[in-house]
Nucleic acid binder design. Structure first.
Lengths: 341, 341
DNA sequence: TATTAGCACTCGTTAGAGAAGAGTGCTAAC
DNA sequence: GTTAGCACTCTTCTCTAACGAGTGCTAATA
């Protein structure tokens, strides 16, 4: 455990580094408000902190910079959430102020979050793993084309275009929709295809003329991607960070963001609450230079979505944590209690 | 008009610069295949071309670099589409090979295009200005919430969540849907709201108990954003271009891409065919350092979408033009003829 | 005993000076 | 009309020196 003085020095160094991104030396530190120690004393303390692995030097005679372990200590022991009333209210107003579709809400949230923090926000839409089918409908567009529409109990709508077998009758389409609705409503989305195969197929055989032609189409319509969708806000913010003044780093960052699958894997979670990973604590190579802060929001039906913020390890943890927590409850509020009950 | 020799020199310089991004001098040029002139002669020709404004020097004793006017001349008079069979077939296979939703098709196209060119592809989805309503449906989710689904004649599906007035009956909802379908099918999407107000409202008053409560909700459901959606592929490609080795330039580029409205304005077009704007020919400041090549695709119902490719002025025009034209017909083919008839 | 002042030393950054190299324009010869 | 030769220009690279911010250590101080 650190003493008061060591804590003060550590905190001051990190706070300073978070805003300036430059190493700070003992002399500069001694002049800071709230610190009434000479440079030499500070040097001793700094040496101690370095020995503990909380600070590092960029070279043998440079000022100190927080290590990842330092940030970890800072996050775990030093900071107490600072409620910046203004920003919180701003966010609340924006999120609550609009009557929004889930998708728009999530996109908007990502933008607001990145705007307020100057980092990059990534939000993973809720996966619909546990959603069940509410209704299936088919709208015929022309002689040979129709669009199938699935609605889940969560209000999610999925639609898919498909071609119709030549010469199929309207009545037959209707029959099929009836069969599907009769048998599939209430079934979890994930199981639809299986159910179609095991239960509905024989029914179709009995009642439909063109069943073999239709079956494949319907089957592909019911294929459901179970992954949530990604919403990104403020990608370009990362370029304003001095540690990413290097094209290669930026390039890596963007190619990582472009790899949706990888990102989804990274963000997917089923546990509540805030989570912070700093630099190399991350298991995925691509973000070992970043800090990732995630939290989740919940919708009715127990589906989780993830809100994440990506920034340099030198992050304004204090502010970011408050904002993320607030956004999490905010979103859960709107999605869960708001219009869903 | 340029003479044969001048044309050859210009073409060679531009071709070289397109691949290397470095100025080329007379001596290096004289050694190139197909050029049997001494360095001195080439210098004379180069001086002439510079006087005409087709070439520029980066400094007084540097090699020459094509000017924007030079590219313009090159595009207009020099290049003839080169059919790279391999790439074209590859693209064809990918686009035609999958049975896709319009949205997926467009996203995939953007990715393929950027992949094949190493530039950034931007595709503007068709605006649904002229689409008409095919069907409207309401699916009740719970006591107080429902989702409204609009299907257009083009197969586009729009859905919106809304809250239900307290205590409303199923039968009443059904009645309303019937009224809406009866009165609004076939009406252009853009007019829906107006029609609702002018025609349907009185009907609702006559037949529905809760009409005043429902009206507002329905009205907001029918609010339709008429702008197409943006699909971007290969954003990070731009960073691989040597002229964008500067964080500031990259930053500008990305903030521009993030500004959807501006991009849509930039890309929106209602005219057929290929269009090339080079550097400062562009009216929008943000892309004065780029070349923009656009073409359009068509869907049934005469809606246009735009396919665009953003790259440095030093662009592989030849290849890019062929690919874009091919993709344009490809997409029109799939969307128009394929399953839509 | 804890703190501080002093000092030698380290290392990154910056500026300047050459040297090298690629390229040009011009002139004169072919 | 084409080409070889040459002086000149400008960028780029490398090397060096000076500077300064910061450190660790030692000795003096409260």
């Amino acid at each position: 455990m650190l003493g008061d003085r060591e804590l003060l020095i550590l905190q001051t160094i990190i706070d300073d580094f978070i805003t300036t991104a430059k190493p700070i030396g003992s002399r500069a530190l001694s002049k800071k408000e709230g610190i009434n120690l000479s440079a030499a004393t500070i040097r001793n303390v700094m040496a101690d902190l370095e020995e503990m692995g909380l600070l590092v030097k960029t070279h043998s005679s440079s000022g100190r910079v927080p290590s990842e372990k330092g940030y970890r200590y800072y996050v775990d022991h030093v900071i107490s959430p600072s409620l910046k009333e203004k920003e919180l209210h701003l966010m609340e107003d924006i999120i609550q102020g609009n009557m929004l579709e889930m998708e728009q809400l999530v996109q908007l949230s990502a933008e607001v979050l990145s705007e307020l923090t100057n980092y990059t926000a990534v939000i993973l839409g809720p996966d619909e793993m546990n959603a069940t089918l509410k209704q299936i409908q088919i709208v015929r567009l022309s002689e040979q084309s129709a669009v199938a529409i699935l609605v889940t109990n969560t209000g999610h709508v999925e639609h898919r275009l498909f071609t119709l077998p030549f010469g199929i009758e309207i009545t037959e389409l209707e029959k099929m929709v009836n069969i599907l609705n009769d048998r599939l409503i209430g079934i979890p989305i994930m199981e639809l295809q299986y159910r179609l195969q095991s239960e509905v197929y024989t029914l179709m055989q009995q009642h439909l003329q063109h069943h073999e032609l239709i079956y494949d189409h319907i089957s592909s319509v019911l294929q459901y991607e179970n992954t949530g969708k990604l919403y990104v806000g403020g990608q370009s913010n990362m370029m304003r960070q001095p540690e990413f003044n290097d094209i290669d780093k930026i390039y890596q960052f963007y190619t990582m963001l472009e790899d949706e699958e990888e990102m989804i894997k990274l963000l997917k979670t089923d546990h509540d609450g805030l989570n912070i990973t700093i630099g190399n604590e991350n298991k995925v190579d691509a973000i070992k230079q970043f800090s990732l802060i995630t939290t989740s929001y919940k919708m009715n039906g127990n589906q989780f979505g993830t809100i994440a913020l990506l920034g340099p390890t030198r992050m304004e943890y204090r502010k970011v944590i408050t904002l993320l927590q607030a956004l999490s409850t905010e979103m859960t509020d709107v999605l869960f209690r708001g219009k869903w009950k």
